[in-house]
């Protein structure tokens, strides 16, 4: 393979020009998916984290089983199961529905663990002080505990979000026209690897600022621990 062949196979501007409209649609779909599944995951995670503060065994054990299950099952398997498995039980789920459910279960469990660690990192005295002034448990959570919890685990939350955005590419297996799916389409039509390369570059450009921000936050947190 000559260098020119290499350029032609991976970095053909011609192919890129042809594939761009399809890739652009894919990027929009990826952003849309992220805008759906990240809030869903955070929501699910918040519920799980709040439940984890309940010590009652009837809450604790089912919660632990739930979180363990959805952290141990690969998200791709979970997604395929919801999309292709549930119809056998008479539950037809759309591709977007399947992605939403799968991500809610999987990333919710991860966000839940991150937020739980955050809540547990807040000293017990904070809740006691808040309750001693008459705040309800819920008010104390909302105004005193959660703001500190989120701040304490902010790098982990961002890191998790980064993973979730990248993970939206598995939606391609249920034929959601997101970035990877569209790149594969373009590749098979043009018989050229440039669209795949383009997708990788787009992902990189999209997420690199987040990665940089994360590094800075992590460094600051290390510096903050005197």
């Amino acid at each position: 393979m000559t260098f020119d062949d290499f350029l032609l196979a991976f970095f053909s501007l011609d192919i890129l020009r042809q594939a761009w409209p399809i890739l652009w649609m894919g990027l929009q779909q990826t952003l849309l998916l992220s805008a759906v599944v990240v809030p869903l995951g955070v929501l699910g995670g918040t519920v799980l984290a709040l439940l984890s503060t309940v010590r009652h065994p009837l809450v604790r054990w089912p919660l632990m089983a739930w979180v363990d299950l959805f952290r141990a099952v690969p998200p791709l398997v979970l997604l395929v199961f919801v999309y292709a498995g549930l119809p056998f039980a008479g539950l037809e789920v759309s591709a977007l529905g399947a992605v939403a459910i799968g991500f809610f279960l999987n990333t919710g469990a991860y966000y839940g663990e991150v937020l739980r660690a955050g809540i547990e990192s807040v000293p017990r005295g904070q809740m006691e002080a808040a309750r001693s002034t008459g705040l309800t448990r819920g008010q104390a959570m909302a105004w005193v505990i959660l703001p500190q919890a989120v701040r304490n685990v902010l790098p982990d939350l961002i890191s998790n979000t980064l993973e979730v955005v990248k993970l939206t590419s598995i939606a391609s297996v249920v034929a959601m026209p997101e970035l990877l799916f569209q790149a594969r389409q373009a590749q098979s039509v043009t018989y050229n690897a440039t669209p795949i390369m383009a997708a990788a570059v787009i992902y990189f450009l999209l997420l690199w600022p987040v990665v940089r921000l994360l590094s800075r936050l992590e460094n600051r947190q290390i510096a903050g621990r005197r």
Partner: peptide, 8 residues
């Protein structure tokens, strides 16, 4: 409280 417990 002994440890103040102000909201940081």
């Amino acid at each position: 409280f002994q440890s103040f417990n102000l909201y940081p």
